[in-house]
C-alpha cells in the first residue's frame, strides 16, 4: 500500500485505512485513550526542565535573602536608618540610604527622560542608516564595563571640569550606564504596540504628541517600566563607577551638586565588611539588608504602577 493520502487527493477506490494512516483505524483517531509512552515522557521532561529553571532562579534568591537577613536582623537597631555613620562604626546608615535614594531618584529623572525619549525616537522616527547607527551606538554604550565608564566620568567630570567627587558626576555616569537599557526596552515596547492603535489615532486626526502620550506610550508602559526598573536596580547595585565619581562621605547629601561627595549603600557593603571593628561589619550586613529591601519595594511599586495605569489594556 502507498503512502497515506491524509492531506492529498485520495486515490479513487481507496479503502478507509488509507484515510486513517498506516496504523489503521484506532491508531491515529484514538481521542480518548492514554497518550503514548513517548508523549508522556516528553511532557514530563518538559515540566522537569521548567521546574529546574525556576529552581535555579528561586533557590539562590531565597538563599541570598535568608543569608542577608540572618546576619543583619539579630543585631538590628532602628538607629541604623536614623543616624549617620561615625568614624568608629557607631551610628547608622542614614547618609548612605539618603545618598542611594537621591541617586536613584536622579537616575529616574535624568536617565529616565533621556532613555524614554531616545527609545521613542528610535521606535518612531529613526529610520534607515541613522537609526541603525544610533542603535549600534547605544549597544556599544551598554557593553562598556561600568568601571570604565566610572573612570571616564572621573577624568571628564571630576578632574576635567574641576568638579569634585559629587552627586552630579555620579548621576551623569550612572545615567550613561543605564540609558541604553531604558532606550532599548522603550523601543521594543513601542514597536509592540498594535498598528491598529496608531491607525485609529491617525484616522481621528489626533496630533502626533497626543497619540504618543495618550495611546502608544500608554500601551507601551509595562515595557518602559521594566526598563526603568532595570536601570534603577543597576544604580542601586553599582559600586565601581561610584567609587570614581561619588566618592564617599559620612555626611547627609547636601545641596551642592558638583562639589560634595555622596555616601551610598554599596560602598558600606563593600568597605565596612573589611574593617576590623564588628560595629562596621554589622553595618555592612545592615546595608546589604536595606539594599535587598529597597529592591523588593521597588519591584512592588513598579507592579502597582503598571497595574494602576493599565486598567484599560487588551490583556486585562
Amino acid at each position: 500500500m502507498g503512502a497515506p493520502g491524509a492531506d492529498g487527493a485520495v486515490p479513487a477506490g481507496a479503502g478507509p485505512d488509507v484515510l486513517l494512516g498506516e496504523g489503521g483505524p484506532g491508531a491515529t483517531l484514538d481521542l480518548y485513550g492514554r497518550p503514548s509512552w513517548a508523549r508522556r515522557t516528553a511532557s514530563l521532561a518538559g515540566w522537569g526542565a521548567c521546574m529546574l529553571a525556576t529552581g535555579l532562579i528561586g533557590v539562590p534568591l531565597i538563599w541570598v535573602i535568608y543569608g542577608v537577613a540572618g546576619r543583619a536582623v539579630p543585631h538590628w537597631h532602628w538607629s541604623v536608618i536614623t543616624e549617620t555613620t561615625t568614624s568608629t562604626g557607631g551610628g547608622g546608615l542614614a547618609n548612605e540610604i539618603a545618598g542611594t535614594l537621591v541617586l536613584m531618584a536622579g537616575v529616574v529623572v535624568l536617565a529616565g527622560s533621556v532613555g524614554v525619549l531616545s527609545g521613542v525616537y528610535l521606535a518612531e522616527y529613526a529610520k534607515g542608516s541613522l537609526g541603525s547607527l544610533l542603535r549600534s551606538g547605544s549597544e556599544v554604550l551598554a557593553g562598556i564595563p561600568s568601571i570604565v565608564l566610572g573612570y571616564v566620568g572621573y577624568i571628564a567630570l571630576v578632574i576635567g571640569l574641576h568638579w569634585q567627587f559629587s552627586l552630579a558626576a555620579a548621576l551623569i555616569t550612572l545615567s550613561l550606564l543605564t540609558v541604553p537599557y531604558i532606550a532599548k526596552s522603550t523601543e521594543v515596547a513601542m514597536r509592540q504596540v498594535p498598528t491598529a492603535y496608531r491607525e485609529g489615532a491617525d484616522a481621528l486626526g489626533l496630533p502626533e504628541l497626543t497619540t504618543l502620550r495618550r495611546v502608544t506610550l500608554e500601551a507601551a508602559l509595562p515595557g518602559v517600566t521594566t526598563g526603568l526598573l532595570v536601570a534603577i536596580a543597576i544604580s542601586l547595585g553599582e559600586t565601581a563607577p561610584l567609587l570614581y565619581t561619588a566618592g564617599f562621605t559620612d555626611n547627609m547629601p547636601g545641596l551642592s551638586l558638583t562639589h560634595a561627595p555622596v555616601g551610598y549603600l554599596t560602598y558600606a557593603v563593600w568597605t565596612f565588611y573589611n574593617q576590623p571593628s564588628t560595629a562596621f561589619q554589622n553595618l555592612s550586613y545592615d546595608a546589604a539588608l536595606v539594599l535587598v529591601v529597597l529592591v523588593l519595594l521597588l519591584i512592588i511599586a513598579s507592579r502597582l504602577i503598571v497595574a494602576l495605569t493599565q486598567k484599560h489594556t487588551e490583556s486585562n
Binding site: 485609529g200 497626543t210 495618550r214 500608554e218 493599565q310 486598567k311 484599560h312 489594556t313
Partner: peptide, 22 residues
C-alpha cells in the same frame, strides 16, 4: 476599521479622544 480598535483607555475617554484633540 475592519477590526474594532478601541484605544487602551476608558470607554468615555475613547469617545472623547477626538473631541479633546480637536
Amino acid at each position: 476599521f475592519q477590526r474594532p480598535n478601541p484605544f487602551p483607555m476608558s470607554i468615555a475617554a475613547n469617545i472623547l479622544a477626538g473631541v479633546k484633540a480637536h
